[in-house]
């Protein structure tokens, strides 16, 4: 019995390991087509779902086209092994290559169109919304944390602390809706431009990570021993000086960790941003122009995509997973571990 229980607990714990590795491998396999097709250049390519026509001289390339078509079919067979449901995959292959049969039969030149996918726009969108969110949320979150841990008397800090934590518990979709219908119009009036834009998405994302950041920053600040603060006060320091010279330096590592962790959360946030970013695959020309982020690109296109398009979305997911995994690891394993 002892042994059974022990092994059961060991396998449950290993599940975490298996799932994480599983996510990585699955995403990698599912994005393999896109990785083979676009390579690392995917990251810097600003196109998405864009048909590019390629003109090829028939005589010299008839053979290669035929070959490549055969390859495609083989690829799809492989794929349908993996994704057994996609019986209709052959119909979808127009996504990838459209071969005009008339051209093939009667013209000297063969026109093919090729659908191009690249991650630059969603990557830029993700980074910029996160950055805006961070710039907006950081000073306010620090202010809240200082207020809660140092300024407010206990009987006020406690309920306000709970209120801030409740704000963190509100589902992100609510932030998105509220942001779209109530917050964005005000920002659009102030700044001009569209209601759905990089700016409004970033700000709502900022409101969303605000309580999370404030709560964990406060927890870091609270680790400063009282006696250390007292001894600074005992030297005649003002509250601000104690905060600046004692509490911040003391809990610096933890605070940085909290900020990075909030950043990692913001990068992967979907719903709050989905309502507001505009969801168009175009590099933003101004802070108030619409664009798209990686999670939103996935949320809006996953159901409909197939073939190379779907594979490219998995590629995006893989990029997001690797980035946020790295950032969260740095925050948790380096900064927050060191702090505690």
């Amino acid at each position: 019995m002892e042994k059974i229980f022990r092994n059961l607990s060991l396998s449950s714990a290993s599940l975490v390991f298996i799932i994480l590795i599983g996510i990585f491998i699955t995403l990698f396999l599912a994005s393999k087509d896109a990785i083979n097709e676009f390579g690392i250049g995917f990251i810097t390519n600003p196109n998405w779902n864009k048909e590019i026509s390629i003109e090829i001289d028939a005589k010299s390339s008839n053979e290669t086209i035929k070959n490549s078509k055969v390859n495609e079919i083989e690829d799809f067979n492989l794929e349908s092994d993996l994704f057994s449901d996609e019986d209709d995959i052959m119909i979808d292959d127009e996504d990838d290559i459209i071969i005009d049969e008339d051209d093939m039969l009667f013209n000297e030149d063969i026109k093919t169109t090729f659908t191009d996918y690249g991650a630059l726009v969603p990557i830029v969108g993700t980074i910029l919304t996160t950055l805006i969110a961070l710039i907006f949320a950081l000073p306010i979150a620090m202010g809240i944390a200082v207020f809660l841990s140092e300024i407010a008397p206990k009987n006020i800090a406690y309920p306000i602390g709970i209120a801030i934590e409740l704000l963190a518990a509100i589902p992100s979709i609510i932030f998105g809706m509220w942001g779209l219908y109530y917050f964005a119009p005000i920002i659009a009036d102030l700044v001009g431009g569209y209601q759905v834009s990089l700016l409004t998405a970033g700000l709502v994302l900022g409101v969303m990570i605000l309580p999370f950041m404030a709560a964990i920053t406060r927890d870091s600040m609270n680790t400063t021993p009282d006696v250390l603060k007292e001894s600074a006060y005992a030297m005649g320091a003002t509250k601000f000086e104690v905060i600046k010279d004692i509490i911040f330096p003391y809990s610096k590592v933890g605070i940085i960790g909290s900020i990075i962790l909030a950043l990692g959360r913001a990068l992967g946030e979907t719903m709050a941003v989905a309502f507001l970013i505009g969801s168009i695959f175009a590099l933003p020309t101004a802070i108030n122009s619409p664009t798209i982020s990686i999670p939103v690109a996935m949320a809006n296109n996953f159901g409909e995509a197939s073939g190379l398009g779907e594979s490219s979305l998995f590629y995006l997911a893989l990029i997001l997973f690797v980035i946020s995994f790295t950032i969260i690891s740095i925050a948790k394993l380096y900064f927050l571990k060191k702090a505690s």
């Binding site: 021993p225 006696v227 250390l228 007292e230 001894s231 600074a232 006060y233 005992a234 030297m235 005649g236 320091a237 003002t238 010279d245 004692i246 330096p249 003391y250 610096k252």
Partner: peptide, 18 residues
């Protein structure tokens, strides 16, 4: 602040600032 500059204090545990 003036009072505390005139009357200093040392605590039970050492309190070096960071």
């Amino acid at each position: 602040i003036q009072l505390r500059q005139r009357v200093g204090m040392i605590f039970q545990k050492p309190t070096p600032f960071p």
